[in-house]
Design a protein around this nucleic acid. Sequence first.
DNA 1: TATTGACCTTCCAGTTACTGGAGGCACTAA
DNA 2: TTAGTGCCTCCAGTAACTGGAAGGTCAATA
Lengths: 134, 134
Amino acid sequence: MNIKEAAARTNLPAKTIRYYEDIGLVQPDRNANGYRAFEEADIHKLAFIGRARGLGFTVEECRTLLHLYEDTTRTSAEVKSIARDHLARIDQRIAEMKEMRKTLAHLVSCCAGDDRPNCPILDSLASDQSVKSG
Amino acid sequence: MNIKEAAARTNLPAKTIRYYEDIGLVQPDRNANGYRAFEEADIHKLAFIGRARGLGFTVEECRTLLHLYEDTTRTSAEVKSIARDHLARIDQRIAEMKEMRKTLAHLVSCCAGDDRPNCPILDSLASDQSVKSG
DNA sequence: TATTGACCTTCCAGTTACTGGAGGCACTAA
DNA sequence: TTAGTGCCTCCAGTAACTGGAAGGTCAATA
């Protein structure tokens, strides 16, 4: 199958699929005309990558997960370790964003949002003190 | 003051300060020897930018906020609008990450993490069905 | 048969916000 | 004078694509 159908089947942009080939995540065959010829196995791999990316794994983690998937001598401990690290990163990132959100929401709530220049958001950014103490 | 002290005063890496000059966020004077000569006003600007970045505003948003800060004819509505957009982005991102977290945490909890190859995390990534229904 | 138009190819550049490093002056203290 | 530190510029790399140009291929139609 051509790249367009592969894209439709995997919900990945054709550009992204070409990129994944570039970096060696998939190696579809080629037809005589030079077009990529995707097999079911390629689709399966791409979908696997797409799902892992959707969970926020980096492309390199996807590569590793794919290797583990294809290596029947893997241990589930290896996989779990990658997933747990990723989970920890997500938790940290969520905590950071919640902190931002809290401060920002406070500032937004303090700002009149009218046609006058006075603005607690700018005051806060301009001052050593107030951003954190929101 | 030289860049090192400016970096210490603003908690920004010297490299980052040079970058901010490159993209026109600050324009410190130069000494006869070519060294950047930071004034208090530059430090103030840099600290402003640093705080805005710390709240997750993009560099371009920081540029706009800085302009608004220096424009006494601004309206607080302009500022609030930027902040509110950013807040919405943060909320969306947090929601996405929580969704990832939920799925991932479930998968991790299902995985034995031992020396056997059987792994629900990989099974899930390999299957159309299970990632979302975790 | 010639020609659309959709599809495919490769390659290059741009995105965000820095960060690292090379090569080379400038300044200070011993 | 020499060593060490600090400063300069410029180039390249990061992550994961994305957009676009230039051009070949294929199927259907006039």
